[in-house]
């Protein structure tokens, strides 16, 4: 009997309140459903467009990570395997040796390996690369442009607003879909493999 009386007490205001609560609950359930369904296809990450990049060197200094998440990537597919590499050697060197004073890279992060006459292969040692883009500039000027700056997504924190994007003079940073997070320029766009 007491229960029935309680039920009768439910007045209009309570009813409206309850209605609100239910609709909100339903809305939340719907929202989370949508979230679960759509999230997989709708995430974006930061990446830089090598075609816009002017290698100003700010990537090395402006990233929130103390060693920038922007690294030099070598698109081997485009590389000419030159002996006289514009990305590896300082312009105007006298000897084509691997001596440190001949190298363009300030941290010696490029490894030069002899393959066969007259080809050399160049590897980037990621731990040493600071993302300054000096080699990229050299490769663009004298070579095929196979050295390109890219955001390394294993290192990138994916800040809400990329600190480099803020100061990038070429406006080269943009959000790209997370399922295709690299943006190489040139002829080898689709041939890179995921690791």
């Amino acid at each position: 009997m007491a229960k029935k009386e309680k039920k009768k007490k439910l007045n209009r205001r309570d009813f409206i309140d309850r209605g609100f609560r239910f609709s909100i609950g339903a809305g939340l359930v719907g929202l989370s459903g949508l979230l679960a369904k759509k999230s997989f296809s709708n995430e974006y990450v930061w990446q830089l467009d090598p075609e816009k990049c002017i290698q100003c060197g700010r990537c090395a200094t402006e990233c929130v990570m103390t060693l920038s998440a922007v690294k030099c990537f070598h698109v081997y597919d485009m590389c000419g395997y030159c002996d006289l590499c514009g990305g590896y050697l300082r312009p105007g060197v006298k000897k084509l040796t691997t001596a440190a004073e001949n190298q363009l890279c300030p941290t010696s992060a490029i490894e030069r390996k002899f393959i066969e006459e007259p080809f050399f292969e160049y590897h980037i040692i990621e731990e040493l690369c600071i993302g300054c883009g000096k080699c990229v500039k050299g490769c663009n000027a004298f070579g095929n442009g196979s050295l390109q700056l890219q955001v390394n997504h294993r290192l990138c924190d994916d800040c809400n607003e990329c600190a480099i994007a803020r100061v990038c003079p070429a406006d080269a940073f943009e959000r790209v879909p997370a399922d295709n997070p690299y943006k190489f320029s040139g002829n080898s766009k689709d041939e890179t493999k995921k690791s």
């Binding site: 393959i115 292969e121 390394n152 290192l155 994916d158 997070p181 080898s188 890179t192 493999k193 690791s195």
Partner: peptide, 11 residues
């Protein structure tokens, strides 16, 4: 000699 792939770590 085979050319190595360009490594692209996933986010």
């Amino acid at each position: 000699h085979t050319q190595p792939p360009t490594l692209t770590p996933s986010p």
